[in-house]
């Protein structure tokens, strides 16, 4: 599966690289668009030294980690949310006549290497935050775990969104709220949100494990909502559970696929 993905992605990259000027422009623009969110954080912290008890660099650490997971996923599997577009255009059939899974093909379809601009931006923010906060290896190792966990969680959300589009073909924007809403939610420390919302994204839809729970460990802080210490380390478990649920949903979705017309 990884080989197939790499092969498809490489083929698309080669096709995109043929237009060099446009390629560079799109990378740059991705960088600029992503910078808007950071600019907003900086504007907020131009007015205050702490937001819900978190400093600017702490927020940037949480933002950088979540952003890195999200942008990597966006590049790698972001096309999964085009299920509804493919169904409407009648092009989904094409994926099903090939001897490999539809998921891999769809995820790699129109693989867009120009999204690297946004990834670079996330890496820079994360790098800045780690340096500014002086995070050491003793707790810094968790950052790698957290980015990987975040990727699995966002990847699962994309898969779920894609799977739901088999049912809600006419309303892709409704299901895409999950992925982009998840990104928006994880940009700030969950401490700013209400207790019910945070408990929801901890125990129901495990977005809290993208950066919040492991991030608290990296920052060496207690959870203002008083969740048990053990949750800081349970991210991978939560991600795995969500991934299994997403896989099951995707299978069901493909089984219920109704090819249109002739």
């Amino acid at each position: 599966m990884v080989r197939t993905y790499a092969l498809l992605a490489w083929t698309w990259t080669r096709a995109a690289a043929a237009y060099r000027g446009s390629f560079a422009l799109m990378v740059l623009l991705g960088f600029v668009v992503a910078a808007v969110d950071v600019a907003v954080i900086l504007v907020v912290f131009a007015n205050t030294t702490a937001l819900a008890g978190f400093t600017r660099d702490e927020v940037l650490l949480l933002y950088g980690a979540a952003s890195l997971s999200f942008t990597l996923c966006d590049m790698l599997v972001g096309n999964l949310d085009r299920v509804s577009a493919h169904i409407k255009a009648g092009t989904f059939d094409t994926f099903l006549i090939r001897p490999i899974g539809a998921w891999v093909q769809l995820a790699a379809d129109r693989f867009n290497p120009t999204r690297i601009g946004r990834i670079v931006q996330a890496v820079l923010v994360l790098g800045h935050a780690v340096t500014a906060l002086g995070v050491g290896w003793d707790r810094g190792w968790m950052i790698a775990v957290m980015v990987a966990t975040g990727m699995v969680i966002f990847g699962s959300l994309w898969t779920l969104a894609g799977a739901l589009q088999f049912l809600l073909t006419d309303a892709p924007e409704v299901v895409n709220t999950f992925t982009y809403g998840g990104q928006q939610l994880t940009q700030y420390p969950l401490a700013v949100y209400s207790r019910e919302l945070v408990l929801g994204v901890t125990y129901v839809l495990p977005l809290a494990f993208v950066n919040w729970q492991p991030g608290l460990y990296v920052l060496g802080r207690d959870d203002p909502f008083g969740t048990p210490e053990a949750l800081r380390f349970l991210g991978p478990v939560a991600a795995l559970v969500l991934a299994l649920a997403a896989m099951a949903a995707w299978r069901q979705g493909v089984r219920h696929y109704r090819s249109t017309g002739s």
Partner: peptide, 18 residues
């Protein structure tokens, strides 16, 4: 949905700086 998340961020800011 997005409005709600943004509202919380603004509330947190105004709590810090009424």
């Amino acid at each position: 949905m997005f409005g709600v998340l943004r509202a919380y961020v603004l509330i947190a800011l105004w709590q810090a700086r009424p």
